[in-house]
Amino acid sequence: MSADTVKKFISFDALPGFLARVAETGTVYAPRREGGAVVYRPLKPGDAPELGARPTESCKHVVFPRSETLFSFDLKAERPALTESPEPGPAVVFGALSCDARGFLAFDPVYNGSGTGGSARDTYYLRRRSRTLLVVKACKSALNTCFCNWVGGGPASPQGADVLAVETEQGLVLDILSEQGAAFAESLPAASEAQAGAALAAVKAVEDSLPGAAELSAAPAALASLFSSAEFWKNESAHCLYCGACTYLCPTCYCFNITDESDGLSGVRLRSWDNCMSPLFTLEASGHNPRPNKADRLKNRVGHKFSYYPSLHAGRFSCCGCGRCIKSCPSSVDIRKIVLDAVKEAANV
């Protein structure tokens, strides 16, 4: 958090009313506790967002829905008709984590055409992305599974955020980071010097509290060199149960499948999340599967994030270090350990 940016203030008491007013012009997604989980849901007017526990899922579904209707079709009519799905409205994510916001920075180059000289632009992604405002709530501590600082982030990183909200005793200090962020917070009073000072101190405290970052610069080459080391991947994946929990909770996993849901000659074309841990992901029409074992698939998941993606996108890892795949893995698979093991293994051969 910089001392130079504009800072606004809102008390905890005023927050539900303020967000209810924001919700009049768009959908406000905020963390809500449901059962043992915390999920992003459209905020009901008057409700306070859950800011005490970190969301189980990332907020990527606001921009990249779990299942999205691309268009509907009707081939029964004389002239086959295609109907575009309606334009999405504006949205605010209030209480995204800083790693969630950075997750979209891994999505963007894949969907905005920057990797293809502008030729492959995903309009469905981009229209939601441009209409979604991200209010990041800085973390007050790190979890055991967090490693945002290994991959260029931090618990209060402003990267990718429109507004960075920092908790102080009486309320939230809002650091305004974009024009849209300024419009969002326009009606709020400026933070006093004391309030801004408290926020800066809180950010420094949490940043200092994180354990040191591991050095990952050797990871891309190490993983590439282990591509054919079947034994290494067999051992690393032994306890993996190859479900989709890691990919579907991950703020940076962006793969999808396309399905026609039809009833006779009419129906809809859906784009829904897909995941590389599933055997179906690479199953070819011939019946051949280039990644028949979970070892092949876990190799892809880790290799993609820490080797193939950075080789295509200026060295950026497509992992924001949120640790959700570690925290929610039913088999306790730890992506940090795999990457560090790979670096060690590659150094030994």
Partner: peptide, 11 residues
Amino acid sequence: RCIRCYACRNA
């Protein structure tokens, strides 16, 4: 709130 991850099935 199910995300269709099939962790339930694979576990």
